[in-house]
Amino acid sequence: MARAKLSIWFFCGILMLADGVVLLGQGIFEHFGHAPATVLANLQPTLWWAVLLTLFETFYTVRFRPSTHSVD
């Protein structure tokens, strides 16, 4: 049985998806009354970055998952 090759983009995807998920947790925590003492915290930059990272990196992880994409 041939082993599927891992694309470097899949690795980038899961790595940054993990970042996105961690930030998402922090962003939701801040949204419910635990805003940090930073400037413009009312704009919720952590939550927005988390949403962007999670969406973008979910796409990357799925797009370059080992079974469908070869590094060649």
Binding site: L23, E30, A35, T38, V39, L40, T46, W49
Partner: peptide, 15 residues
Amino acid sequence: LIRYCGPGLLGLGIT
């Protein structure tokens, strides 16, 4: 970074 990024986002920026 310290002025605008709270916990979590600050870590991402430094990373």
